[in-house]
């Protein structure tokens, strides 16, 4: 960085061309423009569409256009008609616990890989397989494994005397959301493991040796050296995964459809239900804006507290 990275602005004969200079200064913005314009169009349209319709009563089953202006009714209905508060609670619970579990489980596997024993390289290459699956496919894997009658896991757990709810883990209100979190953890722990492993490799041996000479215990070294040095990577991973978990839809859709009742309904699934099943476009629009505001608050809080200044 630091060098202006601007093309030479003189011709072969050395004649200064001010026009070309101006062009070169504008060039980066011209290159960015197509992607920014396409993306702005793709984002602003839905947001503007939702903002307008959030003040109108409109059910697609009753007509192809908004029916009448309804003020803030839709925003009130979000809380009265849909289990918005429950969905928000479920979503935050899933995102916090899921990210926490995946980070520490992944860290454990990364430390195992970091022993560099023979054969671990092959294991590392295969370990990532769960992360490559479409979330719906991961959902099917575990729906089959968890089937209350005939599934392998309930059968094995009953065999060792572990209590299995009669409706199965996905059909029980106390275990449905937990099960979704566990399946997501199964799918994304390898992601944390291999990225944190790459981070471990980047920590210089000299730092570790210096600490060893000073007589630091492995435990102390992990908390005082390894973890702080991994912080930039960890902060990035946690933000990405937290938001992906916050947006959980595919797994919920396949595993529980938000049930039983509303026990595992997430914000994304709530939006899907109102929008694409009940066709309450006005109500969904209001909910969209509530979700947009919540997401913006979360991302900004995270940027303020974790990144403070810029780090990536």
């Amino acid at each position: 960085m630091g060098d202006p990275r601007v093309a030479p602005t003189t011709t072969h004969s050395g004649v200064w061309l001010p026009d070309r200079h101006a062009f070169n200064r504008r060039l980066p913005y011209l290159l960015l423009a197509p992607s920014v314009i396409v993306l702005l169009a793709l984002i602003l349209y839905p947001l503007a569409f939702a903002l307008r319709n959030s003040f109108w009563f409109w059910n697609l089953q009753m007509g192809p256009a908004p029916l009448y202006y309804s003020g803030l009714d839709n925003y009130r209905m979000v809380f009265q008609v849909t289990p918005f508060a429950v969905a928000l609670k479920n979503t935050l619970l899933l995102a916090f616990l899921g990210t926490f579990a995946q980070f520490w489980f992944g860290m454990g596997v990364a430390l195992l890989l970091h022993t560099h024993l023979r054969g671990l390289g092959l294991m590392r290459a295969l370990l990532i397989m769960p992360t490559t699956l479409a979330p719906v496919v991961a959902g099917f894997l575990f729906r089959y494994l968890l089937e209350p009658k005939g599934g392998l896991l309930p059968w094995a757990l009953e065999g060792i005397g572990f209590p299995v709810p009669p409706q199965g883990f996905l059909g029980n209100a106390n275990t449905a959301l937990l099960s979704i979190g566990l399946v997501d953890t199964w799918q994304w722990t390898p992601f944390f493991a291999i990225v944190l492993y790459a981070g471990l490799l980047s920590i210089s041996e000299e730092v570790k040796e210096a600490a060893q000479v000073d007589g630091a215990s492995p435990w102390r070294m992990f908390w005082s050296i390894t973890l702080p040095l991994l912080r930039p990577i960890a902060a990035f991973l946690v933000m990405i995964r937290f938001m992906q978990l916050f947006n959980s839809f595919d797994l919920v859709f396949v595993l529980t459809s938000g049930g039983p009742g509303t026990a595992s309904r997430t914000l994304s699934f709530n939006l899907y239900r109102e929008g694409l099943v009940n066709y309450n476009i006005g109500l969904t629009a209001a909910m969209t804006w509530l979700v947009v505001i919540i997401v913006s608050v979360i991302i900004n809080l995270y940027l303020v507290f974790v990144y403070r200044k810029r780090e990536w």
Partner: peptide, 22 residues
């Protein structure tokens, strides 16, 4: 750069329903 990544971590369902009608 941050703006691009904010799109990657935004909930897609928010955009999908307006797209469906559009």
């Amino acid at each position: 750069m941050n703006w691009y990544i904010s799109l990657l971590i935004a909930p897609p369902i928010v955009f999908v329903i307006p797209y469906f009608i559009l």
